[in-house]
Design a protein around this nucleic acid. Structure first.
Lengths: 189, 189
DNA sequence: TTCACTTCTTATCATAGGTCAAGTGTACGA
DNA sequence: TCGTACACTTGACCTATGATAAGAAGTGAA
């Protein structure tokens, strides 16, 4: 398996070779073409995905039909609609590939089974969600209290790779501003 | 132990009486007076707290000396600075009691020990953080894309109890607006 | 080579919400 | 009972960012 999934698990919990085998067999690999949807609003999110290569965005569409991006994820990170996944109820969100991407996915049932067979994976995901939560709170604070320009500068510093791979329209939305505003901010410097 | 801590644990994992005993002995109870700080910026956050009764706020102070609240928590919920707690590095945040409050606290070392002794607690906290993360993302989306008035209305609906117990200045900050703006919004209806 | 499409920029005008400054009302400790 | 300190409101003015509309620059397919 030519990917970093087990590597990341092993960073937080020690897995035996047998356990690694169980994990490998619980995930299935899949691919998605640029501009295709992994999830559409109204569908129930059946899988959690680990991105082995590629780039995807999560967004929702408001009353007026405008798209709002709240997540952009690239190689070696997880993507899903957790709300829909864990409740197994229809999602409000879309997940779309911004590049041709390769993924590993695990279904709700398989993941629950996996937790039962290898309880220490609870630890891995506990730590993963803990970090994701801390991160989301920091982003919340930045969105509430920093100017659009400050948020842009922070993103430039912390995720410079995104600017190489993601069109500015999407980055603007992720930052919570219009493409026009982003353009003005970029002109200043 | 006259509190709901074990009740909440048991909602997600089945505990034996012995395990319940271990948990009880791992937490210590403490109390804090209104206006006192549970945590100050610069300190390392030593504990995670479960609020058995009371009300607290988490906030940070920006360059200009303005306070920004990102969390208000009441009875039967958890509060801490997880960033500082899990890295055991100094915090950027304050936690202050808005009412005389009663808490159960557990230290970093005790919690790690508890995870070792009762691994299924990883599951409880995995689910807790998962929900907290989903919640934070929803709040992030609301902050980015809904008007101040919409956010106020949502809060009125979803956390009406807060308006009984928390001064509007703090609620304004939690909503990401000034007290003046909140006052104007409230006048409208 | 051209046409169509996507990405990004620019200009003008509009507005939600911030800032500052000055109130009013209420509550509690001395 | 008084006085100080909160809690909240109001008004006048300001500014960052949104909305709209148009155009420039780059890219890829026929």
């Amino acid at each position: 398996m030519d990917n970093k999934l087990l590597y990341y698990f092993n960073k937080w919990v020690k897995l035996t070779p047998e356990e690694e085998e169980i994990i490998k067999s619980s995930f299935e690999s899949c691919a998605i073409k640029k501009k295709k949807d992994l999830l559409e609003a109204g569908e129930t999110c059946k899988y959690v995905y680990f991105i082995t290569k590629g780039c995807l965005r999560s967004y929702f569409v408001d009353d007026k039909g405008n798209e709002h991006i709240y997540q952009i994820r690239m190689d070696n990170s997880w993507i899903s609609d957790l709300q829909s996944f864990f409740t197994q109820k229809p999602s409000h969100y879309y997940i779309e590939a911004l590049e041709n991407s390769e993924l590993l996915r695990i279904s709700f049932e398989q993941l629950e089974k996996l937790y039962t067979r290898i309880p220490k994976l609870e630890r891995y995901f506990r730590i993963l969600f803990q970090k994701a939560y801390i991160n989301a709170l920091e982003r919340l604070n930045a969105t509430m209290w920093d100017s659009a320009e400050d948020r842009y500068q922070t993103m430039l510093k912390e995720q410079p790779d995104m600017f190489q791979r993601v069109p500015l329209v999407y980055i603007a939305s992720y930052l919570g501003i219009t493409p026009e505003s982003l353009s003005r901010i970029r002109k200043k410097k």
